[in-house]
Design a protein around this nucleic acid. Sequence first.
DNA 1: GAAAAACCTTGACCTGGATCAAGGGGGTCG
DNA 2: CGACCCCCTTGATCCAGGTCAAGGTTTTTC
Lengths: 207, 207
Amino acid sequence: MKILSGIAVRLTFNRTEIIFQDGDKGDGIYIVETGKIKVYKLSLDGKEQILHIFGPGHTFGEVPVFQGKSFPASAMALEPSDIVFLPRDRFVELITTTPALSMNMLADLSRRLRAFTIQIEALSLKEVPARLAAYFLTLSKEQKNAARIRLPISKALLSNLIGTTPETISRMLKKMGDAGLIEVQTRTIEILDRESLIELSESGRLQ
Amino acid sequence: MKILSGIAVRLTFNRTEIIFQDGDKGDGIYIVETGKIKVYKLSLDGKEQILHIFGPGHTFGEVPVFQGKSFPASAMALEPSDIVFLPRDRFVELITTTPALSMNMLADLSRRLRAFTIQIEALSLKEVPARLAAYFLTLSKEQKNAARIRLPISKALLSNLIGTTPETISRMLKKMGDAGLIEVQTRTIEILDRESLIELSESGRLQ
DNA sequence: GAAAAACCTTGACCTGGATCAAGGGGGTCG
DNA sequence: CGACCCCCTTGATCCAGGTCAAGGTTTTTC
């Protein structure tokens, strides 16, 4: 990414600062250097559904660049974050002159389509305990299959990510604890019975 | 698409025939010539969530080509369909040697990401009547804002597309009729009160 | 390091919509 | 043209999980 300096712009955001909003016109892509970003949708009555959480190395905001319209969702910094902004024209030039880069971009968008497919499946075909279990398993996989995982976000945010409420998260965590699947300590989850957790994530029902 | 002949393969499918299944290895892309295809997810207990319905001119099955894995969902013909299959290697060659083509592909994937964003928002933040209303408005827009629209799929499929059941669709259509928003005749919907339908689709609740 | 703010938990209650069951068309293929 | 099949409708019942309320606990912030 060193190539980009001189054209790219470095931006900094504090916690809770908005980077762009659903409907804004998009004129470039964003690259996370440090920090953590949520991309989300709000309903009119204020409920939130999180679509992605991005960390260092991730890019976001491409959709309007390739499909000349507005952002389909909003983005907010969850921590103090450094973001590199690359203007549309320069980015399109890079992409069109660098086949490998465009293949990378196609792969990145495909990865996100796959992730959305899984999210739609979860929201429509799975119940809350299954979604929670799947989330923990994904986290564990990201952390080299550790049995002890640390939640990267608060439970309030987690509820908006998997499409439920903090109260329900609380109750389900308790149930999963009672069932001997996990043990919860504040921000840390210990996976006690991975087999059952996998079964739960695929279809199962709790107890 | 004439360029492709000689390398591409023409396939035909009858109604209900499966084109590929969730988890299969993908080794090329599919282009619909005639017919209608659904791309969908099944739960273990047989419930279905439709992700896309594709018609003539649409391409599908790209995700595994760009992100070397399996299909994230299944595809089935809804009518007798002619499909052109373009093998991976040839397709990647085309893409990498034709910047305009790769930009088209990026735009297509971006369009789908946008559509998924809307679908996730609908499933998570909207109730069934709002999803139905939004579906009718989308249909109307596709049919040059006609007030009289024809459903391209059965109500049973529609229920799997918007994430509910045929029974609920039936009840909601009746309520929307009673409220004077629409009038239903078998496969045709007449929009009587577009304003209220828009309001309903955005947040509203029925009566 | 104390005050304020955000976050989390638990209980009681409520409701949207799923499920189960049973009839009623309507298109289509011998 | 009649029989089958699929699709749709309507009613009765049920339940996962949302909402409201209140109290306790961590985190931030100054």
